[in-house]
Amino acid sequence: MGHGPAVKLGKDDATSYKTKLGVSMFIVYTLVYAAFVGINAVSRALMQKVIFGQTLAVVYGMGLIVFALVLAIIYNHFCTAAEKRMNQ
């Protein structure tokens, strides 16, 4: 059938650890994103409130972008460490 990776992949004993970590971080980000969508859907007045000199909408929106990158870097750090530890 010709399935399987296009290149030969080495054995990865850290897969299970990385999957659990990914699911946990996904849940965290999803909750923060869902709260953002929820507030936008039900309370525009709250999103117009000024925090740190900006509207909450801007602060939350920028925060979601920065939070995504921070989580991604943390995720990569722990995954890389796990790969080194478990695939020796």
Binding site: G2, H3, G4, P5, A6, L9, D12, T15, K18, T19, G22, V23, M25, F26, Y29, T30, Y33, A68, L71, A72, Y75
Partner: peptide, 17 residues
Amino acid sequence: WMVALFLVAEPMKRLGK
């Protein structure tokens, strides 16, 4: 992209061709 990173990226690489 967080869905892609946390849930899909590595399994897609592992399973597909």
